[in-house]
Design a protein around this nucleic acid. Structure first.
Lengths: 225, 225
DNA sequence: AGGCTTGTGACACCGCTGTGACAGACGGCG
DNA sequence: CGCCGTCTGTCACAGCGGTGTCACAAGCCT
């Protein structure tokens, strides 16, 4: 299920879109300011951001630029109809698509799906980490050409890590991404799953070279050097 | 060599793309209006059409619809970034893919090849998976040369799976593709049908080698190794 | 009406998953 | 350099959930 972050200061529009998008089968997090949006983004790691341009404080373009410094996820800008210059500035700030307000929810939904599809095509197929090859369409993982039997959870964990190679993900983030629930208090759940994954994926599970521990934070899948 | 028809009224974009696509190994015909495009299409029978949406006279959607009345060739729409309604209407008018202008030639080229590849797979009238041969024009399935009596649903399920060999399909996707309805809550419907199909198709139904279970996801028809 | 096909529910099995405990590793600090 | 607290690796176990399987009833076509 796609996980969206909606950043929009107007309460009516925000809650309306949040409801509509939820109905259309997305998971939605919402923020009412640029600052909140950036914080939520770092915390929750959504798949896509719907971003209003006119925000108090940090405006949409700036939010977009800051996110783009580190991340490649799709960003859809919401712009007011009257602004002509938006498109140009928006393009330069790195957005993937534009939607003009007022927007019909199903139009926005169609755009979101289109952008995600585009991204999937680009991200998908297969990626390699050393001798480890992840085939996202067959949903298989092979090591030295040999098929690995990963369990569903192990597979999802590896997929989420591999979507952000080289980036450390906290246990909280992984719980949200892989298990889709927030966790109160810590547990060894993520560690246990990482451990099982390492057993299948690493050459020497006790000296992992692919899935590295980031002490005090979480885990990180190293890109091939 | 793929033969493309490019329909685009803007002279600069048209000649630019024509040049770039020719360099990338396509044969290209070009038209500057919807009318010209339709005429050229009938005359030259290209393999694929790249079609601008905003055209004077007959617009891109209309061109798309008219072509679709009689022909199934792939159509890629070129849309301006700012248009709101494009995606929805475009989907309904039967295009196969969208590219947002301004487009980098190599991106367009990649899309073209992707769409052509997809089309080849879908239209080829027979494919083989080990001893299993699917004849799409006769709508028959044979195993070791012997005709299999598949029921309509079993056949559609196998066809959908075989259109995407090696790709895991979720139960949701299969329900949409084969049964054409979304399902709320889970059911054993897909499993049951897969089970019946396996009974006819697999050598050892209890140890399937063609239709593989992808745990936590769905099923996948393995291509011949 | 009759037979085949299809959808649904029940059920059992197996493997996965989540949990807690414990030991070892790491890093900070004196 | 050594101690100690915290964090992580590891393991076993019990519960759960997903999947295969089957039987039955309703639907559909002939």
């Amino acid at each position: 299920m796609p996980f969206l972050l909606l950043i929009e200061d107007d309460d009516a529009i925000r809650t309306g879109l949040e409801l509509a998008l939820t109905r259309q089968g997305h998971r939605v997090a919402a923020a009412a300011s640029g600052e909140d949006g950036l914080r939520l983004f770092k915390e929750q790691r959504p798949d896509l951001i719907v971003l209003d341009v006119m925000l108090p404080g940090i405006d949409g373009f700036e939010v977009c630029r800051r996110i783009r410094r580190t991340d490649q996820l799709p960003i859809i800008l919401l712009t007011a109809r009257s602004d002509d210059i938006d498109v140009v500035v928006g393009l330069e700030s790195g957005a993937d698509d534009y939607v003009v307000k007022p927007v019909q929810p199903r139009v926005l939904d169609a755009r979101i799906r289109a952008v995600l599809r585009r991204g999937e095509r680009e991200n998908s197929d297969s990626s390699a980490f050393g001798s480890l090859v992840i085939d996202r369409s067959a949903m298989t993982v092979t090591k030295d050409g040999q098929d690995l039997q990963l369990t569903p959870t192990e597979l999802r964990l590896l997929l989420e890590l591999s979507r952000r190679p080289g980036q450390a993900l906290s246990r909280q983030q992984l719980l949200r991404l892989v298990w889709e629930h927030d966790y109160l208090g810590d547990s060894r759940l993520v560690d246990a799953c990482v451990q099982r994954l390492r057993a299948k994926v690493e050459d020497v599970p006790s000296a992992p070279t692919l899935i590295r521990t980031v002490r005090g934070v979480g885990y990180r899948l190293d890109p091939p050097s």
